[in-house]
């Protein structure tokens, strides 16, 4: 079970990153759990100061940008 977290205060970019991550996880047929972290204190506790960010199993993988579903697929299959 992969734990996927999208960090962001709910702007359009965060939604976009969440959508791409969902697409990527489904395309790979992963067992996953996707949650959105919107609390600022929680976001900064990851060391992230630019949103949106993607965290996989507790590790920060992407910060401050939206990447494509294709790029997330590569990223998820690497870890």
């Amino acid at each position: 079970m992969k734990k996927l977290q999208i960090l962001g205060t709910g702007c359009a970019k965060c939604e976009m990153l969440a959508k791409h991550t969902e697409e990527a996880a489904q395309a790979l047929g992963l067992a996953y759990e996707l949650t959105k972290v919107t609390d600022i204190a929680q976001i900064t506790s990851f060391g992230v100061i630019s949103t949106p960010a993607l965290v996989v199993d507790g590790k920060v993988k992407v910060t401050g940008k939206v990447i494509s579903a294709e790029a997330i697929k590569t990223l998820l299959s690497e870890c």
Binding site: T9, K13, I40, T44, G47, V48, I49, S50, T51, K65
Partner: peptide, 17 residues
């Protein structure tokens, strides 16, 4: 530095702390 006013708050906290 890439900056978007939507992440001004986490950035501010990150810097100050």
């Amino acid at each position: 530095t890439p900056f978007c006013s939507c992440s001004a708050v986490p950035l501010f906290i990150g810097f100050v702390t």
